[in-house]
Design a protein around this nucleic acid. Structure first.
Lengths: 201, 201
DNA sequence: GTCTATACATCGATAGAC
DNA sequence: GTCTATCGATGTATAGAC
């Protein structure tokens, strides 16, 4: 009834991917062995290969799902037609929600950047999807520079990278709580980058 | 004339460490093999062990030198007794200068964080030095919150982490040029985090 | 101080029984 | 769909010649 594919999208397959993502995030993809992933899933190393044909393929599945979801969400935000400042605010919230929907994927994506780029053929799909999401940020920030919403003194590239890095890395330490929910955190990030920490006189 | 030690601090030893740091930064410590480090230094893998007793020890030497230098610089800044905003600005510049003095070390330190923490005994010295530098930032930021220089709405921890991550990661992409020197870049980082991207009305 | 040679461990992936 | 068993590759580190 189901179509054969290199990628296993069954429930068991998804469960294995989640466990793999958790370990990739914790100690890196290279340092995580197939035996460890198998053990977490309650099976032996050889059995993993019934679901996925290689470790790299597991990485592609984890990151591809996440980036596709992220880019889809980004497109919807762009279509809503916010002003520059609101656009930045909304993209921050959207990014954090996407990260929350794909536990550990954002963390893995940023940590494995060097590894991905060393095998452009294997990870072509991931690299392209990553570029697409970067382009959205570039576009959003440029809008604010062009229409005078943002200060011209700060180079576009500098602001872009600072915000991107702080946002990406926040998935490493921030965990939503009742006292400090995701939307409040997103608002604080936006406030720091748009308003600064000094009070507005 | 020279005292025997586990760590080789000779010229040749330092040269090997620089080449190792470059590769650690590029593809990760675990993914860099002793054979590759040796090849870059124009020798065979076995010969490295005349200078260092293990790869982990090389990592300790690279990161220890960097963090000791950084903390020493931080202490001098604290002793100068700046106001909160100037203190943040100065710490940013100081951090970037320290990173420039130790090519790739900051990059390696941030990328290998999970690896370091998985072997607390081996990397104890590094972990402690890292905590010391974090404490300096916490103290500096807290001063501004306490004396009312900074806005109270943003949680201290949030601001601290955002600034820390953006600053650490900037070593991955920023390279000083004549058109955009280190001090100008440091000023822009400080300006984004203190003043924000929106113009002050 | 660098070499060759190699011991020893571990990993990714495969083959075939159940 | 999972197991056992194992191959072949590769990595760290050591031993001893030069």
């Amino acid at each position: 009834m189901s179509v054969e594919s290199t990628v296993d999208s069954s429930q068991r397959g998804r469960q294995i991917l989640l466990l793999a993502a958790e370990q990739f995030a914790e100690k890196g993809a290279k340092a995580t062995t197939m035996r460890q992933i198998a053990a977490a899933a309650g099976m032996k190393a050889g059995s993993i290969y019934h679901h996925f044909s290689s470790k790299d393929e597991m990485l592609v599945a984890i990151l591809g799902d996440y980036l596709d979801d992220l880019n889809q969400s980004y497109r919807e935000v762009l279509a809503a037609g916010h002003g520059a400042a609101d656009l930045i605010r909304t993209l921050i919230i959207t990014s954090l929600h996407a990260s929350a929907r794909h536990p550990h994927a954002a963390e893995v994506y940023q940590a494995e950047q060097p590894y991905l780029r060393r095998q452009p053929e294997v990870f072509e799909r991931i690299i392209r999807a990553g570029r697409e999401s970067q382009a959205v940020w570039s576009e959003a920030i440029q809008i604010g520079y062009d229409d005078g919403t943002f200060r011209q003194e700060i180079p576009v590239e500098t602001f872009h990278r600072l915000l991107r890095d702080a946002l990406w890395l926040s998935v490493r330490w921030y965990q939503p709580t009742e006292a400090y929910p995701l939307d409040a955190f997103a608002g604080d990030i936006a406030s720091v980058f748009l308003d600064g920490l000094l009070p507005r006189a």
